[in-house]
Nucleic acid binder design. Sequence first.
DNA 1: TCAATGCTTTGATGGAGATCGAACTATGAA
DNA 2: TTCATAGTTCGATCTCCATCAAAGCATTGA
Lengths: 227, 227
Amino acid sequence: MKDGPDIARIASLIGDPARANMLTALMAGAALTASELALEGGVTLPTASSHLAKLIEGGLLTVTAQGRHRYYGLAGPQVASMLEAIMGVAAGVGPKRARPGPREPAMREARVCYDHLAGEHAVKMMDTFLARDILVRDGQEIRLGPNGASHFIAIGIDMERLGPSRRPVCRDCLDWSVRRSHLAGQLGAAILDKILAEKWARREKDSRVVTFSQKGRQAFEKAFLEV
Amino acid sequence: MKDGPDIARIASLIGDPARANMLTALMAGAALTASELALEGGVTLPTASSHLAKLIEGGLLTVTAQGRHRYYGLAGPQVASMLEAIMGVAAGVGPKRARPGPREPAMREARVCYDHLAGEHAVKMMDTFLARDILVRDGQEIRLGPNGASHFIAIGIDMERLGPSRRPVCRDCLDWSVRRSHLAGQLGAAILDKILAEKWARREKDSRVVTFSQKGRQAFEKAFLEV
DNA sequence: TCAATGCTTTGATGGAGATCGAACTATGAA
DNA sequence: TTCATAGTTCGATCTCCATCAAAGCATTGA
């Protein structure tokens, strides 16, 4: 007994429906205010405030105060990865494969995961990068391959801005819908930025779903899948 | 709201201390009886029985009845991976990096994770395999590399027995202590079997810790790290 | 200084669920 | 059959914690 880390502590934090909904909302990547999260969690402000305090105490969330607003966000990519892993199990062993839910198909195809792209498109992209040695695995780490940097520059990713930071440039994240890895980290975030900036796709309002336009999808495939 | 899988449901299952201890105990790989799990969880038999019923209902555990014994085990490698992921976050953001605990250093070095080896040694081994193209990544999947099969046969792993099964031969699992991947799947299990069969290392009683002997460690390094 | 907005704290309430003793069922052994 | 062991079910208790209304701070703007 008492082996390893205190898993019950953090699991019970996620185990409350209101908190789980808040965390799920934050998977969309944007930091949200307490009022917004109260709405997501389906509780009143005082209740939400109490939940948020616990999530911070538990190390799952961080706050940044800006004037009279306080923005809450996931404490880091590690937390996001863990949440996706739990989603994977929940989706797999769920209560008899219940109704897939209206938005689920779209979510499987493309969605925002914290700050990068997830879903089938993202997994295919990751596969391509690895197959072409644009990215290479080094244990759990992922690094730029031999011709990686030049490739991303050619596509129009500003590699200069992925400067020195504690956050790794590349990182993988387990996809709950497809159960395969997709690209996270600074580069993953930059690619999502690019896709949205070029208007190849747009984010659905109040959702993590990402919808590609006809032309946008072609441009995306040309840039990232047909290398 | 109500996006994606029901994460709160399964997180709350893990969130109870008694259940969390049971699950952690099952990470050692062996299926245990209800009485043994009651002991692990620190509760009486009736309480444990109720917990176990919930864990099965939730899809995290499976039972196999044998005479008057009922053996409980993790529902699959997916569940084991998820638990390790949670441990990762719990270890990282834990309450002020509390006392590391007596057994923790040994756990970091080498331990059993469900049915394969985890810890620093396992991570180094995985790195070597990938660096030498004995194993190769293909997205989230891991496959045998060009000279992979022959290499394992030379070492003495019976590749024939890793026959057709729904379970993948190779799989990666995120290590909570080192936060890097190690090898799971049928091959990971076979390698652990080999290590124990050759008596290069032995399992500590009532623990997940794996201790290498002086000579065993050399043999292990020769076989798996100096390829 | 006053009012308005955003959020936290306090206190009271209620409900869910963890717990155990005791009774019950099932398997195996004598 | 009878006893013993393994496990589940039932019922009662009790504790924890999620919840919200109301009051308290803090920041912004007039």
